Simulated assay, not measured.
Amino acid sequence: MTRFDQIKASFWSDSPHGRQPPLTHQAARDAECALGVKLPAALLELLWIQNGGVVADEWCSYPTSDPTSWAEDHVPFECVMGIGRVEANLSLLDTPYLVGEWDLPAHIVLLAGDGHSWIALDYRASGPRGEPSVTWFDADTQTELPLAPDFRSFVEGLTRDATSPTDEVEEVWRRPGLDELDSIWNHAADYGADGEAPEGTPPGIVQLSYLLRVHNSAMGGGLGFAVEANEPYRLKRAMDAMRYFGLAELAELIADVIEHDLDGDHAESRNDDLKALLGPRDEALTTAFRVKAADSPADFGLR
């Protein structure tokens, strides 16, 4: 068994977040036609098993020899886009829109990312029918880093992310009862993508799910996309959740974009404000969550 086959067997996590309906041959052909490229066979092998979603912890990081805005020695590969049109889930088919929204190069197909940075199939050298390389693109700094000569090699190089929490929140992580924060965050993200948290979910997790639904939409497609893709009641819930976590400025930013919801240029002009409020790797958001969980553990089902 090759290393690719070994990784393929345990590549996907159990999380439903980010999944598209099971892939069909017709959907794969339609995607290649829409994107104007031949997708790598190795990528399709993974998508036949599960059509996008969260990558298992063992394979959610790719080591790098050069530093990036993400880390000194690796980039994340935590969630892979599938092929489909499930609401609130990004898809390979969203590439043309996202490339334009985030001012990325032409002739690429996005695989994973959050708006600040992306991992993509890079067809600039291979041409649309060739075997693309895999490249990291930083939308904030307009830089890029070649990762692997082809997608199969990229998968074979994946490893577990062994990084520790950031210095700003290390003290919070050490407090008793907060070892479940990763799990809480992931559940909230799943509930946000699904639309509703199950009955009986602790209120803090419910609030986080409201916030993450709109946040993840904005990270994928920009503020204009987030306002367009989410119903007014979801936007209101998200803004209330932002205030619950002490992120009033973020709520005011969303309110401003809603007020100008027919002005796409205004929404685009405020994307930089969003990045400034969230900080590198969305640290303002993650810190607010961890501090709230430390201050009000019962709201998150913590002891």
Rank of each mutant, 00 (worst) to 15 (best):
Y191M: 10
K236T: 15
D167L: 08
F245C: 12
P198V: 01
P165E: 07
H25R: 13
T201Y: 07
P146G: 13
L211V: 11
Y210V: 05
S296A: 08
S209C: 13
V55Y: 01
P165N: 04
N186R: 13
V134L: 11
G113Y: 04
L250V: 06
C60K: 03
N230E: 10
A293C: 04
L253E: 03
A255L: 13
H215V: 14
G279A: 05
H25L: 11
A34R: 12
T166C: 04
P146Q: 13
E156C: 08
A148W: 06
A139L: 07
A226I: 15
I258W: 05
Y191F: 13
A106E: 06
K8T: 01
D150S: 06
I258Y: 01
D30P: 06
S10W: 00
T143S: 15
Q50K: 08
P40V: 11
L92R: 06
W136T: 08
P22H: 10
D273C: 10
W136N: 03
A125M: 04
L46I: 06
N89W: 08
L92F: 12
G52Q: 01
E156N: 07
F300Y: 13
E87A: 14
A293E: 00
V99R: 10
L92V: 03
S117H: 03
G84D: 14
Q6E: 11
D57Y: 05
I7A: 07
A112T: 09
N216F: 04
A255E: 10
R213E: 01
S15Y: 06
